[in-house]
């Protein structure tokens, strides 16, 4: 029983990881007033280019770099459209997701052909010395892929940045009161640009985690809605880092039940278990946790003097 619980915690953490990475990045951008529905597309693009980079170079770390680069490029276009061209952020996001699905599928077919599942060099699991042998916590927490530890550190960094730096203050200012922020001399456009690029960076990490660290290959539409779950987690978390991470863990745990319950001999329809994260996300965005206040200027473009 204890062993099972440890495995459950480990798989929860593994399944929640891409959500946590993507959601914490998206959080920064949303606090600055820009919603990236394209999160799904950024992650899928990253998963593909990460796999491609890792496969072509034989080096999974180079793969991670490719993933991040690809995702940051997508986020830069998103930032240009959202901030400079003041396009409808929701519509642009949908466009990116369609494009990312099409482009990654197309490129995969062209490069790898047909339906082959090319195995790519993946990141090793890192057993933390001394800790991985602990009876319970060892299995639960300390036999994860390298990227998990780096990712967790990045999430702590984002939390610190948002809450304890002047840049974090600027981000929150342009997300709530861009006009006042502008008058106070904070560059609204530049701050939003940086925030969206941070989202791209983290989504890149998330995508790399899925293809390089977790699955070790690329499959068509492999993110399969993870980006949307991450967006729901941000709402569930009330635009607060700690609560957003908690929401991701909850979604991860719901997904992990798919594997855990059958192993425990409990028979629940698979379809219901697959549905569970989305149902929870629906409840979350319906505000069962209390009505949540989004950043005041979320999705509203800013134009000086208007």
């Amino acid at each position: 029983m204890e062993e099972m619980l440890a495995v459950f915690i480990a798989s929860t953490l593994r399944l929640a990881m891409p959500l946590m990475l993507a959601a914490s990045g998206e959080l920064v951008s949303e606090r600055a007033g820009v919603l990236n529905l394209s999160l799904e597309g950024m992650m899928l693009t990253a998963a593909f280019f990460g796999a491609l980079g890792s496969w072509a170079s034989g080096n999974p770390y180079l793969g991670v770099a490719c993933a991040i680069l690809a995702s940051v490029v997508v986020s830069a276009v998103q930032a240009w459209l959202s901030v400079n061209l003041r396009a409808n952020q929701l519509v642009v996001g949908i466009g990116f997701n369609i494009l990312a699905l099409g482009a990654t599928t197309l490129l995969y077919r062209i490069i790898f052909g047909g339906l082959s599942r090319e195995e790519i060099p993946g990141l090793p699991k890192l057993a933390v010395k001394g800790l991985s042998d602990l009876p319970f916590a060892g299995t639960a927490f300390f036999q994860q892929s390298v990227i998990v530890y780096v990712g967790l550190a990045l999430i702590v960094l984002i939390w610190a940045m948002l809450n304890h730096t002047s840049f974090g203050l600027a981000v929150r200012a342009v997300g709530d009161e861009p006009r006042s922020a502008d008058k106070a001399g904070i560059p609204v456009a530049a701050t939003r640009w940086k925030a969206v690029l941070i989202t791209g960076f983290m989504a890149g990490f998330a995508g790399a985690f899925i293809s390089i660290a977790d699955i070790h290959t690329f499959t068509e539409n492999m993110t399969n809605g993870a980006g949307y779950l991450a967006l729901a987690a941000v709402i569930f978390g009330g635009w607060n880092v700690g609560r957003t991470i908690a929401a991701c863990l909850l979604f991860g745990a719901a997904t992990a039940l798919q594997f855990q319950l059958p192993a425990m001999g409990i028979h629940v329809p698979t379809a219901f278990l697959l549905m569970l994260p989305y149902l929870l996300a629906l409840l979350a965005v319906a505000g069962v946790v209390g009505r949540l206040e989004p950043p005041t200027s979320l999705t509203l473009p800013f134009q000086r003097g208007k």
Binding site: G95, I98, L99, A100, L101
Partner: peptide, 23 residues
């Protein structure tokens, strides 16, 4: 030619139309 090509075309159309509103 992978049919995903039509998705690429559609995605580009949506982004282009949304992006050109201000213009």
């Amino acid at each position: 030619v992978p049919a995903a090509l039509t998705l690429v075309i559609q995605g580009l159309i949506v982004i282009a139309v949304a992006g050109s509103v201000i213009l």
